[in-house]
Write a protein that binds this DNA or RNA. Structure first.
Lengths: 257, 257
DNA sequence: CGAGGTTACTTTACGCTGTAAGGAGTCGCA
DNA sequence: TGCGACTCCTTACAGCGTAAAGTAACCTCG
């Protein structure tokens, strides 16, 4: 098995996510850990091993057993929720709109793109889930705060915020997963893609005839930037180009009614 | 644990997905099963129990043990790949463009939306993965075939196809997961959302002040369609509205260079 | 027709997972 | 000083995917 995605008990998760955590004097041994240290350890493990991390691995990194974590955190799903939100603390909470909303949204999207690249496991967390934690809130708020300057009504803006969010996430996923598949087999991007299409051609030689339009799209390529790995070229190009279209659409909505 | 996503060995998956499967005479007992019957059983189980289905459950549905499946299928990940592609066989392979590309893309998006609603587990399958199977190919081809009539160059179209795909999938995910969370606790949509925001308000009473723009967006609601459940209203509205913006963007790209 | 090899399927078993249950040791407060 | 709360550990369990080995069915060839 490969991958998990957590959705913990929302009540427990929300309480932990927004906790004011007053450090009162209490009986018993001093806590050697804290929710924060566990969440950090969890993020570190997930960054290394992907989403298939185990509670035992997180405990080990802290010099404890897996069960020790359950003193602080109700379960793995809730821990994932906490990790998810805490990772988002890395992201800016506001963007300047002096130059207008368009460059600001572009910056937002690029920041998200890079963020997903740093923490690909985030993309496996049960996505598009209702916003739960403060940092996830802040990230969406930062996008909404840019777009509200367009003067569009709230109804319209909700759809747009969602669309931008979905698009960036989806685009980031394309890269992250292809990259993961490549590195799992120890191949570079290029070899991996080549091997894949080789198998495909072998098994279905008439691929180009059966899916002529896709073949057409595939063959109209940009000149390649030698700085970037093979895969990135493709993905970045599609990301940029898709984002432009989306932004054009928003511009259209701003211009007319 | 909740959810899994499979990415099988691409070589094996591709061979199974595109198999010409010649039924030759061979020694040994007659096969009581087939790859197809296993894939169908897998889809049925996943439709009922979600992605957390087990090989034992699939075997049981066919009156076999889990291990019997391994005669036909290399492993669970590959089975998931097969299920994923087979489910997509439900979708149309082409859309009329007599009225132009815009209504056709809308139809495509709505069909996808409904498809994801019928098979929510599909959304958990490692997404935005490189296209592997014939039906997944056909689905993307059907979208590309509509959009190619815009006359836009291939480079541009690839970004657009990706954007539409990501958007529809992301939007569908919002509903599917919220719905799943609601039904897991046995609550209706409305109660679930209400309970969630109640906890949030209890823990962070100043939510509206801390995230003023989101509060603004949230409060500008459309009149509710009493035909639909609470959640659906919201999601469908956002889906429609986001799609419109995206389509406007494409229209802009068609109009100017 | 009978032997041999191939195949379908079962049984058993292993290592892994998340986590429930109970016990050991540590500390604040009465 | 002891009680009760608390942290952390050990043990244990049910479930998972699947490797390995065994059994029975069947075709092909002598």
């Amino acid at each position: 098995m490969v991958v998990y995605a957590g959705q913990g008990d929302p009540r427990r998760s929300i309480e932990l996510l927004w906790r004011a955590s007053v450090a009162e004097q209490r009986p018993g041994p001093k806590p050697g850990l804290s929710v924060d240290s566990i969440v950090d350890a969890g993020i570190a493990v997930a960054d290394e091993q992907g989403m298939a991390f185990s509670m035992r691995a997180v405990g080990e990194r802290l010099g404890r057993t897996a069960m020790a974590l359950y003193t602080y955190v109700p379960g793995k799903n809730e821990l994932i929720d906490l990790m998810y939100d805490r990772a988002m603390a890395e992201l800016p909470t506001s963007y300047p709109v002096a130059d207008g909303w368009r460059p600001a949204v572009t910056r937002w999207a690029e920041d998200m793109w890079e963020f997903y690249g740093r923490h690909p496991w985030v993309l496996q967390v049960s996505q598009a889930r209702p916003v739960l934690g403060p940092h996830e809130f802040a990230v969406v708020e930062s996008l909404a705060a840019i777009l509200v300057t367009t003067g569009l009504p709230g109804r319209r803006l909700r759809g747009i915020v969602g669309a931008v969010n979905h698009f960036v996430r989806g685009a980031a996923q394309s890269v992250a997963e292809a990259r993961a598949a490549g590195s799992a087999t120890g191949e570079g991007d290029e070899e991996w893609w080549y091997a894949r299409s080789a198998v495909l051609m072998e098994v279905e030689p008439e691929l180009a005839e059966k899916f002529p339009v896709l073949h057409l799209l595939e063959s109209d390529r940009d000149p390649v930037d030698p700085e970037l790995p093979y895969l990135e070229n493709d993905a970045v190009e599609n990301f940029r180009s898709g984002l432009e279209v989306l932004l054009d659409g928003i511009e259209g909505a701003v211009a007319k009614p």
